[in-house]
């Protein structure tokens, strides 16, 4: 594969920013809303947005089963913020009927840092991403409260009241962050994911 095709789940959220970030690091990026469009991609990004809304639309437009099947078959998926919640096996402080994909063996807490007035920017050091700490933007963000034995913790909050909280993880071909690299113009995480898609192919 010379140019990997990477879809961005385009039911709701900051789809355009992810498409632009992926295109900027050499991927053929495109929005995906239908099962047929999913068939054409090598990897998938689940964007930031409102996880309750995305979770509902995934069911209404019959995207859950096709995505679960592709994940089981090894398709790389990256989720930011709401996307991390969608990739979590267990969600706290969500709606009782909220369901994610058959994804990462972890428990995440929604809106864990507080309401919008508590949203913040802070540096986060990421394992496997060179070039120094990542300037991370957290917006009504979740954090990870439990990880299973197969989950690698890539980053934690390093200052403030939430110090030590897990905000970036990887399990096999699944990658998830509490924060939004698509908003900062720093291409390293998207490049990392594109490499993951290349390697997985």
């Amino acid at each position: 594969m010379t140019v990997p095709v990477i879809g961005v789940l385009a039911l709701q959220g900051d789809v355009r920013e992810h498409v632009a970030a992926l295109a900027g690091v050499g991927a053929d990026a495109r929005p995906v809303r239908r099962p047929g469009e999913l068939d054409a991609v090598d990897g998938l990004v689940v964007p930031g947005g409102e996880s309750t809304t995305i979770s509902k639309l995934v069911d209404i437009f019959e995207m859950r089963e096709p995505i679960d099947k592709r994940i089981a078959a090894g398709m790389p998926v990256y989720g930011s913020c709401a996307g991390m919640i969608m990739l979590a096996a267990e969600v706290l402080d969500g709606r009782p009927d909220q369901r994610g994909f058959a994804g990462v063996d972890m428990t995440v807490r929604r809106n864990a840092f507080g309401r919008q007035v508590d949203s913040f920017e802070a540096p986060v050091a990421l394992t496997g991403v060179d070039g120094g700490p990542f300037h991370a933007v957290f917006i009504r963000a979740p954090w990870v409260e439990r990880v299973g034995p197969d989950v690698e913790v890539l980053g934690r909050v390093t200052e403030g009241p939430a110090t030590g909280r897990i905000v970036a993880v990887r399990q096999g071909n699944l990658l998830a962050t509490s924060f939004h690299p698509e908003l900062t113009g720093d291409p390293r995480l998207h490049r990392h994911f594109v490499e993951l898609v290349r390697t997985a192919a």
Binding site: Q12, G49, S119
Partner: peptide, 13 residues
């Protein structure tokens, strides 16, 4: 960035 970013997350909604 945090304020404008919050609105980005509402897009398509």
């Amino acid at each position: 960035r945090v304020k404008r970013g919050m609105a980005e997350m509402l897009k398509g909604g």
